[in-house]
Design a binder for these strands. Structure first.
Length: 433
RNA sequence: CGGGGAGUAGCGCAGCCUGGUAGCGCACCUGGUUUGGGACCAGGGGGUCGAAGGUUCGAAUCCUUUCUCCCCGACCA
């Protein structure tokens, strides 16, 4: 993509409305624009990241055997009245009426709808286990939205729902999702810490939340340091669940079950939550199957959520410096910023265009900064946007047929000729996607 | 929902106390000069001062009402 043809409005100054670093950077780098409190428009760069995150989550869900569907944002109140939550949810639920005065709502979650879908079609234990998911916008009318997309009222969430014949089988589904979650966050370059959690208003008996480490995180986590060094190929859910991990209001300084030198303390941001809640909804909404003896049995359910839009902010909280964002390659909006410092110079243009075309042919995503701005403006804009690799092409080095390849994270750079740079980056990026 | 703060050009802000025809920086447009870390010179465009009402000869400024946004707290993916 040529920057001059793109739409990526960057800002020099910090927006008055933003408080935390990820929010500031998201606005300055032109990822989102606030539409109203806790509601955002996603601009091209932000949308690319959002889609990349969504896709990683999707791939890991599919690998774990979940099946994708798509449920609507607007739901009828009927099912919610049946489940009892139309009353319980209170003012957080955005209630609306259609033209004939029918009670509708903008879904804050989808247990009711999914259970209804399930009970409409599934009648036999032979069809279990079943695990359905979708990635859809939700709306929760928070008392106080804040922190940009990290705590929006409208937010994109992947949520899925597992159906099993028994509690034992439900635990197997639960552990599959647990494993998928760890793998998902590791793939994004994050360090996930899983914590046993209170089940909260969704109700039930087993629940874990997933936090990712970030210096600016809201909660303080105390956990076994083993949790920091997980091999995505060898995730053992039972073992991981046995490790110590607690948030600060649960952790007891004087009494915790591991050695002091095993204990790590870090800040975290919650990005996922999983629940096993048994037959709570199947009971209320009548989700039964027949078992092998022909007897009707309530299905055991679990639900699993990942805050996709929140992750965009959380990843920035985890990866940034004072120059801007530092995207991990798997979620980055582009792989390479190709910065042409001298768009007036024929040689610079020629080398830039060639390299750009060759990289694009190899399916590398390149943002080619061909804008007619001064060098400093372009360099700082690209640092702000945070694309993981930069190729800097200027008149000075080109006299010796050299261009600069810079790592956005370490800020280390090397001078290579264009062919070497091409080969280096192809290898580098393909090994990390 | 309780407490606090803010709405003036696209963005960031000054002006308000003490009423008198609205200003700065950035961005934007035109021309020129520049080019290895947010360029420079010259010229230019852009605001019913959040909205409604009131006081006054006169309101961005004083008064009333209202809307919106932000921050702190209680709650959450």
């Amino acid at each position: 993509m040529k920057f001059s043809n793109y739409f990526s409005p960057t800002l020099n100054e910090n927006p008055a409305e933003a408080e935390i670093i990820s929010h500031k950077l998201m606005i300055r780098a032109g990822l989102v624009k606030q539409a109203s409190a806790g509601i955002y428009s996603w601009l091209p760069l932000g949308l690319k990241v959002l889609k990349n995150i969504e896709q990683i989550v999707r791939e890991e869900q599919n690998k774990a055997g979940a099946i994708e569907i798509l449920m609507p944002t607007i739901q009828s109140a009927d099912l919610w009245i049946k489940s009892g939550r139309y009353k319980d949810y209170g003012k957080e639920m955005l209630r609306i009426q259609d033209r004939s005065g029918r009670e509708m709502l903008y879904g804050p979650t989808n247990e009711e709808l999914i259970t209804d879908i399930f009970q409409s079609y599934v009648n036999s234990y032979k069809d279990l286990p079943l695990n359905l998911y979708h990635t859809q916008w939700k709306f929760r009318d928070e008392v106080r939205p804040r922190f940009g997309v990290m705590r929006g009222r409208e937010f994109l969430m992947k949520d899925n729902y597992s159906f099993d014949l028994s509690q034992e089988e439900a635990k197997i589904s639960y552990d599959k999702m647990f494993t998928a979650y760890i793998k998902t966050f590791l793939r994004m370059g994050l360090t996930p810490i899983s914590l046993r959690a209170d089940t909260g208003p969704i109700g039930g008996d087993l629940s874990h939340e997933f936090q990712i480490l970030a210096k600016t995180g809201e909660s303080t986590l105390y956990y076994d340091k083993e949790l920091e060094t997980l091999d995505p190929e060898k995730i053992e859910p039972e073992k991981l669940q046995s490790y110590y991990a607690a948030v600060d209001d649960i952790h007891d300084e004087k009494n915790y079950p591991i050695n002091q030198d095993q204990l790590k303390i870090s800040k975290g941001i919650e990005v996922g939550h999983i629940f096993y809640f048994g037959t709570k909804y199947s009971e209320k909404l009548g989700a039964y199957v027949q078992d092998n003896k022909g007897e009707k049995r309530l299905v055991h359910m679990g639900s699993y959520g990942i805050g996709i839009s929140r992750l965009v902010g959380a990843i920035i909280e985890a990866f940034h410096d004072d120059r801007g964002i530092i995207w991990p390659i798997p979620v980055a909006p582009f792989h390479i910023s190709l910065i042409n410092l001298m768009t007036e110079d024929d040689k610079c243009n020629e080398v830039s265009e060639n390299l750009y075309n060759n990289l694009v042919k190899k399916n590398i995503e390149v943002l080619y900064d061909d804008r007619k701005f001064s060098m400093g403006k372009k360099l700082s804009d690209n640092d702000l946007i945070g694309i993981p690799y930069q190729i800097i092409i200027g008149k000075r080095d080109l006299k010796e047929n050299l261009i600069e390849v810079k790592d956005r994270k370490t800020y280390e750079s090397q001078k290579l000729n264009p062919d070497q740079a091409f080969n280096f980056l192809i290898n580098e990026i393909n090994s990390k996607i």
